[in-house]
Amino acid sequence: MTSCHIAEEHIQKVAIFGGTHGNELTGVFLVKHWLENGAEIQRTGLEVKPFITNPRAVKKCTRYIDCDLNRIFDLENLGKKMSEDLPYEVRRAQEINHLFGPKDSEDSYDIIFDLHNTTSNMGCTLILEDSRNNFLIQMFHYIKTSLAPLPCYVYLIEHPSLKYATTRSIAKYPVGIEVGPQPQGVLRADILDQMRKMIKHALDFIHHFNEGKEFPPCAIEVYKIIEKVDYPRDENGEIAAIIHPNLQDQDWKPLHPGDPMFLTLDGKTIPLGGDCTVYPVFVNEAAYYEKKEAFAKTTKLTLNAKSIRCCLH
């Protein structure tokens, strides 16, 4: 018999989150649709729960009410004593943790798909938090293969000092899905179709896995975050240069030392320094102006996964 890495157990509980950011409308629209008619997301033997994560922000069509829901799922915020004085999103995070967690427990949901849009030209993107997770690498390989020839990129946010504390991190297997470009507060049919297909293929993978299909060893190309880059700023902290036209919409493309990065209003080009080629992502993302992030630098690498098969009882 072929030796293989056996994944822990079959997958039982899956959640699909929309509206973690209330103005990213593809996930909101799909989740609302699936709450009314969820036939397309159901798979035999699998509990799939669509869920609106930040209903107040969705109602106002804004990213958040008090603070970013997708950055506060750490033990400090989840452990705060519940009171009306807490920011709305912290209270909501505790409610979500109660419903789908608790985080880092045996009772937490197996998989959470968190649906997002970006204003950046990132196409279909899967966000991975753990480079050693054979199950998710296999799932992402399946999704990428199923979507081809449509490109699907994998963004690895594993980093020693950049801690995200994402909404989906309460699950055993957290999956971020990011599709763009799409303006905030807008629905685009092409973007919706791409996100819908990503979810379909992900659920198909889980179904095949649960039925005992063995997935042979595989490898995927990923883009691992190195650092986030702020806009150049003046002495008052105001933005002093904008994304250069040569960099705009060039997510995932190589940016070499000396290539144009920013452009000042008086026409001066600010190039990339250093001696390493990087791959920019979230270029000129609207939501990241407040976070002082013009783009993120990534490096390209390959992740390998062992063969996996479900432990059938």
Score class of each variant (00 low, 15 high):
Thr2Glu: 15
Ser3Ile: 07
Ser3Ala: 13
Ser3Asp: 15
Cys4Ile: 11
His5Gly: 14
His5Ser: 14
Ile6Val: 14
Ala7Lys: 12
Ala7Gly: 13
Glu8Lys: 14
His10Ser: 13
Ile11Ser: 00
Gln12Cys: 06
Gln12Asp: 14
Lys13Glu: 01
Lys13Tyr: 01
Val14Tyr: 05
Val14Cys: 10
Val14Gly: 02
Ile16Gln: 01
Phe17Pro: 02
Phe17Asp: 02
Phe17Tyr: 06
Gly18Asp: 02
Gly18Ser: 05
Gly18Met: 05
Gly19Arg: 05
Gly19Ile: 04
Gly19Phe: 03
Gly19His: 00
His21Asp: 01
His21Thr: 04
His21Val: 07
Glu24Pro: 04
Thr26Ile: 03
Thr26Met: 03
Val28Phe: 11
Val28Gln: 15
Val28Tyr: 15
Val28Asn: 13
Phe29Glu: 15
Leu30Gly: 01
Val31Ser: 01
Lys32Leu: 00
His33Asp: 07
His33Pro: 02
His33Glu: 15
Trp34Gly: 04
Glu36Gln: 14
Glu36Arg: 11
Glu36Met: 09
Gly38Glu: 12
Gly38Asp: 14
Glu40Ile: 04
Gln42Gly: 09
Thr44Ser: 14
Gly45Gln: 06
Leu46His: 02
Leu46Thr: 07
Glu47Asp: 12
Glu47Phe: 08
Glu47Leu: 09
Val48Arg: 03
Val48Gly: 03
Lys49Trp: 06
Pro50Thr: 08
Ile52Gln: 01
Thr53Ser: 14
Asn54Glu: 00
Pro55Cys: 10
Pro55Ala: 11
Ala57Pro: 01
Ala57Ile: 02
Lys59His: 11
Lys60Val: 10
Lys60Gly: 12
Lys60Phe: 10
Thr62Gln: 14
Arg63Glu: 07
Ile65Glu: 10
Ile65Gly: 04
Ile65Tyr: 07
Asp66Val: 01
Asp66Ala: 09
Asp68Pro: 04
Asp68Ala: 01
Phe73Lys: 10
Asp74Met: 11
Leu75Gln: 14
Asn77Glu: 11
Asn77Thr: 13
Leu78Pro: 10
Leu78Asn: 10
Gly79Trp: 13
Lys81Cys: 13
Met82Cys: 14
Ser83Ala: 13
Glu84Lys: 13
Asp85Gln: 13
Asp85Leu: 13
Asp85Cys: 13
Asp85Pro: 13
Leu86Pro: 11
Pro87Val: 09
Glu89Gly: 04
Glu89Gln: 05
Val90Lys: 09
Val90Phe: 11
Val90Gln: 11
Arg92Cys: 12
Ala93Val: 10
Gln94Lys: 13
Gln94Thr: 10
Glu95Pro: 04
Ile96Met: 10
His98Asp: 14
His98Leu: 13
Leu99Val: 12
Leu99Lys: 11
Gly101Pro: 07
Gly101Tyr: 05
Pro102Arg: 11
Lys103Val: 11
Lys103Met: 12
Asp104Pro: 10
Asp104Gly: 15
Asp104Glu: 12
Ser105Pro: 10
Glu106Phe: 11
Asp107Asn: 13
Asp110Gly: 01
Asp110Val: 04
Ile111Met: 07
Ile111Cys: 09
Ile112His: 03
Ile112Met: 01
Phe113His: 03
Leu115Val: 02
Leu115Cys: 08
His116Gly: 11
His116Tyr: 10
Asn117His: 03
Asn117Ile: 04
Thr118Lys: 06
Thr119Phe: 02
Thr119Pro: 04
Ser120Val: 06
Asn121Val: 04
Met122Val: 15
Met122Lys: 04
Gly123Glu: 01
Leu126Val: 02
Ile127Thr: 07
Glu129Leu: 01
Asp130Arg: 03
Asp130Phe: 05
Asp130Met: 05
Ser131Trp: 06
Ser131Gly: 09
Ser131Asn: 04
Asn133Val: 00
Asn134Val: 07
Asn134His: 14
Phe135Asp: 04
Phe135Val: 04
Leu136His: 02
Ile137Glu: 04
Gln138Thr: 05
Met139Tyr: 01
Tyr142His: 08
Ile143Lys: 03
Ile143Tyr: 02
Ile143Met: 06
Lys144Asp: 04
Ser146Ile: 03
Ser146Gln: 15
Ser146Thr: 08
Leu147Ala: 04
Ala148Tyr: 14
Ala148Trp: 13
Ala148Gly: 07
Ala148Ile: 07
Ala148Thr: 08
Pro149Lys: 00
Pro149Met: 03
Leu150Lys: 12
Leu150His: 12
Pro151Lys: 09
Cys152Phe: 04
Cys152Met: 07
Cys152Ala: 07
Cys152Asn: 01
Tyr153Gly: 07
Tyr153Glu: 09
Tyr153His: 15
Val154Met: 02
Val154Asp: 02
Tyr155Thr: 15
Tyr155Leu: 15
Leu156Gly: 01
Glu158Val: 01
Glu158Gln: 07
Glu158Cys: 00
His159Lys: 14
His159Met: 09
Pro160Ala: 11
Ser161Phe: 10
Ser161Arg: 12
Ser161Leu: 09
Leu162Cys: 14
Leu162Asp: 15
Leu162Tyr: 15
Leu162Gly: 15
Lys163Pro: 13
Lys163Met: 09
Thr167Cys: 14
Thr167His: 09
Arg168Thr: 11
Arg168Ala: 11
Ser169Asn: 09
Ser169Gly: 12
Ile170Tyr: 07
Ile170Gly: 05
Lys172Pro: 08
Tyr173Asp: 01
Pro174Met: 14
Pro174Trp: 15
Val175Ile: 13
Val175Trp: 03
Val175Leu: 05
Ile177Leu: 09
Glu178Gly: 15
Val179Phe: 04
Val179Asn: 03
Gly180Tyr: 05
Gly180Ile: 05
Pro181Ala: 00
Pro181Ile: 00
Gln184Lys: 09
Gly185Ser: 07
Val186Asp: 03
Leu187Lys: 03
Asp190Met: 00
Ile191Val: 12
Leu192Asn: 02
Leu192Trp: 05
Asp193Met: 12
Gln194Phe: 09
Gln194Arg: 14
Met195Pro: 04
Lys197Asn: 12
Ile199Phe: 03
Ile199Gly: 01
Lys200Ile: 11
Lys200Phe: 09
Ala202Thr: 00
Ala202Glu: 06
Leu203Phe: 06
Ile206Tyr: 00
Ile206Ser: 01
Ile206Arg: 06
Ile206Lys: 06
His208Gly: 09
His208Thr: 12
Asn210Glu: 00
Glu211Lys: 12
Gly212Phe: 00
Lys213Val: 15
Lys213Pro: 01
Lys213His: 13
Glu214Gln: 09
Phe215Arg: 01
Pro216Ile: 00
Cys218Leu: 02
Cys218Arg: 03
Ile220Met: 11
Ile220Pro: 04
Lys224Arg: 10
Ile226Cys: 08
Lys228Ala: 09
Val229Met: 08
Val229Tyr: 02
Asp230Phe: 10
Tyr231Asn: 02
Pro232Val: 01
Arg233Leu: 14
Glu235Lys: 11
Glu235His: 10
Asn236Trp: 08
Gly237Thr: 02
Glu238Ser: 09
Glu238His: 10
Ile239Ser: 00
Ile239Lys: 05
Ile239Pro: 09
Ala240Ser: 14
Ala240Pro: 03
Ala241Asn: 03
Pro245Lys: 00
Asn246Trp: 07
Asn246Gly: 09
Asn246Met: 10
Gln248Met: 12
Asp249Ser: 04
Gln250Ile: 06
Asp251Pro: 02
Trp252Ser: 02
Lys253Phe: 05
Pro254Ile: 00
Pro254Gln: 06
Leu255Asp: 05
His256Asn: 14
His256Phe: 08
Pro257Ile: 00
Gly258Lys: 08
Asp259Val: 04
Met261Gln: 06
Met261Ser: 02
Met261Glu: 00
Phe262Leu: 03
Phe262Asn: 02
Phe262Thr: 04
Thr264Ser: 09
Leu265Thr: 10
Asp266Val: 00
Asp266Phe: 01
Gly267Trp: 00
Gly267Ala: 06
Lys268Cys: 08
Lys268His: 10
Lys268Ser: 09
Thr269Trp: 00
Ile270Pro: 00
Pro271Cys: 13
Leu272Asp: 03
Gly273Lys: 11
Gly274Tyr: 00
Asp275Pro: 08
Asp275Phe: 07
Cys276Leu: 14
Val278Leu: 02
Val278Arg: 02
Tyr279Cys: 01
Val281Phe: 01
Phe282Gly: 15
Val283Asn: 02
Val283Gln: 05
Glu285Pro: 03
Glu285Arg: 02
Glu285Leu: 05
Glu285Thr: 10
Ala286Met: 08
Tyr288Arg: 14
Glu290Phe: 07
Glu290Ser: 11
Glu290His: 10
Lys291Ile: 04
Lys291Met: 07
Glu293Ser: 13
Glu293Ile: 15
Glu293Lys: 14
Ala294Lys: 04
Ala294His: 00
Phe295Lys: 05
Phe295Val: 02
Phe295Asn: 00
Lys297Trp: 04
Lys297Gln: 06
Thr299Leu: 14
Lys300Tyr: 00
Leu301Asn: 02
Leu301Ile: 14
Leu301Asp: 06
Leu301Arg: 07
Leu303Ala: 00
Asn304Asp: 08
Lys306Thr: 13
Ile308Thr: 05
Ile308Ala: 01
Arg309Ser: 11
Arg309Pro: 03
Arg309Leu: 04
Cys310Arg: 13
Cys310Thr: 10
Cys310Ala: 12
Cys311His: 15
Cys311Ile: 12
His313Glu: 15
His313Ala: 15
